[in-house]
C-alpha cells in the first residue's frame, strides 16, 4: 500500500508548503489554521496506510504478477438490511428539535437515540443472530 501512502503523505507535504506560503503572503490566522489541520488530515490517512501496509504485506493489487483470483475472498461483514438507521435518524431529529423548541423534548429524543443506537449496534448479537 506504499503507493496510497505516498499519495496521502505527498498531499500532506503539499499542504504544508502551501500553508507556509499562505501565512507569509496573507498573515491570515483563519486560513493558516485550516491549512495546518489539512496537513493533519492527509498525514493521518497516509500514516495509517504506511503502518497497515507494513503489517499486511503486499496485497494482490500491489503485485504485477498477481492473478485476479487472488483477490477473491471475504471483504468484510455486510448486513443484509436494517430498519434501525431509520429509527436512529428519526430519534436524532427529535433530539435536535428538542434543542430548538423545548428541553423536555430533548430528553425524550435522547432516550429514543439510546434505544435505537442499542438496536442498531446489537442487532446481530440478539434474537436469531445471538452468537454461540
Amino acid at each position: 500500500m506504499k503507493t496510497e501512502g505516498f499519495l496521502f503523505t505527498g498531499w500532506a507535504a503539499f499542504f504544508a508548503i502551501v500553508d507556509v506560503v499562505y501565512w507569509y503572503t496573507s498573515h491570515d490566522p483563519t486560513g493558516t489554521t485550516a491549512l495546518a489541520l489539512t496537513v493533519g488530515l492527509a498525514f493521518l490517512v497516509g500514516f495509517f496506510l504506511f503502518v497497515t501496509g507494513r503489517r499486511t504485506g503486499l496485497r494482490p493489487e500491489d503485485r504485477p504478477d498477481a492473478d485476479i483470483s487472488e483477490g477473491a475472498g471475504e471483504y468484510g461483514f455486510f448486513p443484509s438490511n436494517s430498519w434501525w438507521p431509520l429509527f436512529l435518524a428519526a430519534s436524532s431529529a427529535i433530539a435536535a428539535l428538542g434543542v430548538v423548541f423545548a428541553w423536555w423534548l430533548l430528553l425524550v429524543g435522547l432516550m429514543l437515540v439510546l434505544i435505537s443506537a442499542c438496536g442498531f449496534i446489537l442487532e446481530y448479537y440478539r434474537g436469531v443472530h445471538t452468537p454461540r
Partner: peptide, 24 residues
Amino acid sequence: MATATTLGKSHAHGSFTRPSLVSV
C-alpha cells in the same frame, strides 16, 4: 459477501492480506 449468519465466523477482520474495511 458475508451475510448476517456468518458474523461469528468472519475471518476478513483478522485477515493479514488486506486492511480491514472497518479500520480504513
